[in-house]
């Protein structure tokens, strides 16, 4: 079966930077741990008052289309994958879906398909999985996956509500705002494409992290059982990667880089260190937590874009993407990247 590929990529990051130190200074309760040292998050981008999920997504799409050989009229489907779904301030939109606004705004055809999906931090990769299947079945020729993630409102709630040193809202202080968009189509060569992609939801642990409105204040909050999530992932990642390696006859040495979901640098490195036995040498681990924090559903694409812009990931290189999200969704993708920042 032919591969699909990432044809072009666009990332938008709000200009304003907020440091972890600035955030912690606003809090009455000191964490029991050094948040910056533990997570590696020093900075994150922060939306300005006029920005919401819709505008973050739109900015990312505009950049993606600039890098693409397609125009908006050529696109067969747009899938918006944001968790936060805010439009016009902090209105959490249930219907119409965000993609219906985006589709009209960028001038897509009326008969092009649009829908949103929501799947926590696995959102964009779930979109990639869906679009990969839609293209392979012949349902569409190409498509656009986008997420505008306006997630710092959970930090604002955490600052107001954290009341004990091991509060479930501490993870809310690690997030940053962003938008990312990727256009996919059928690959025309063996030199670029999504070679393998597997995602599964281990639903036994679906109640380990909830993002929802706060019941104490206006705004939204995220309640994370961080230790339980880390333990669950660390116990399953070696076997999951081992199975992936055995099934497809590949291993760590086949990859130039690994882009894990960006949660905490220490957690990421300790989890990957345990995978050597089942997966072989772990490739260069790409982390941008220090500058962007955890951008939730966009994280892999924010990091991919950053590392490609800085020349650390080069077209033609092979990247292992590790998906870890509330659900708990665990997934692996093997991707040969092309020239995502220029017209393909």
């Amino acid at each position: 079966m032919t591969m699909t590929r990432f044809e072009s990529l666009g990332v938008y990051l709000p200009e304003r930077e907020v440091t972890t130190r600035e955030l912690l200074e606003k809090m009455d309760t000191e964490p029991m741990f050094d948040l910056e040292k533990l997570t590696g998050v020093k900075n994150r981008r922060w939306r300005d008052d006029s920005e919401d999920c819709h505008s973050l997504a739109l900015n990312a799409i505009e950049r993606c289309l600039q890098h693409s050989s397609y125009s908006a009229e050529d696109i067969d489907v747009i899938i918006c994958t944001s968790i936060t779904r805010f439009r016009d301030g902090l209105n959490f939109v249930l219907e119409p879906c965000l993609s219906s606004y985006l589709k009209k705004r960028i001038g897509m055809r009326a008969d092009a398909l649009n829908f949103d999906i929501t799947n926590a931090c696995a959102g964009m990769f779930s979109g990639v999985h869906i679009l990969d299947q839609l293209i392979k079945s012949g349902a569409v020729k190409n498509g656009l996956i986008v997420s505008g993630e306006c997630i710092t409102p959970i930090s604002e709630t955490a600052l107001k509500e954290i009341s004990n040193p091991v509060d479930e809202q501490f993870a809310s202080l690690t997030v940053g705002d962003s938008g990312a968009a990727v256009i996919m189509d059928q690959s025309t060569s063996e030199d670029e494409g999504i070679e393998l992609l597997e995602l599964q939801t281990m639903a036994q642990f679906s109640d380990f992290c909830f993002g929802m409105p706060s019941d104490k204040n206006a705004g939204v909050a995220m309640y994370t059982k961080a230790m339980e999530i880390h333990a669950t992932v660390i116990q399953r990642l070696p076997a999951t990667l081992g199975h992936f390696a055995d099934k497809h006859q590949i291993g760590g040495s086949d990859f130039d880089h690994v882009i894990p979901h960006q949660t905490s640098e220490r957690a990421i490195r300790s989890a990957l260190a345990l995978c050597g036995e089942t997966f072989g040498d772990i490739p260069n681990t790409c982390v941008a937590l220090d500058r962007f924090g955890n951008t939730s559903s966009t994280s892999h694409f924010v990091v991919l874009n950053d590392f490609m812009e800085r020349g650390e990931i080069k077209p033609g290189q092979k990247v292992l993407m590790l998906v870890m999200a509330s659900g708990i969704v665990l997934g692996v993708a093997a991707v040969k990247v092309g020239n995502l920042g220029g017209v393909n």
């Binding site: 779930s126 199975h243 665990l330």
Partner: peptide, 20 residues
């Protein structure tokens, strides 16, 4: 598909919400 099963690694479930 409650958990990763090393005995049946290919038997898993993928889930998400469609909103439209």
């Amino acid at each position: 598909g409650l958990d990763f099963d090393p005995e049946q690694p290919n038997q898993s479930t993928f889930s998400f919400d469609v909103v439209n």
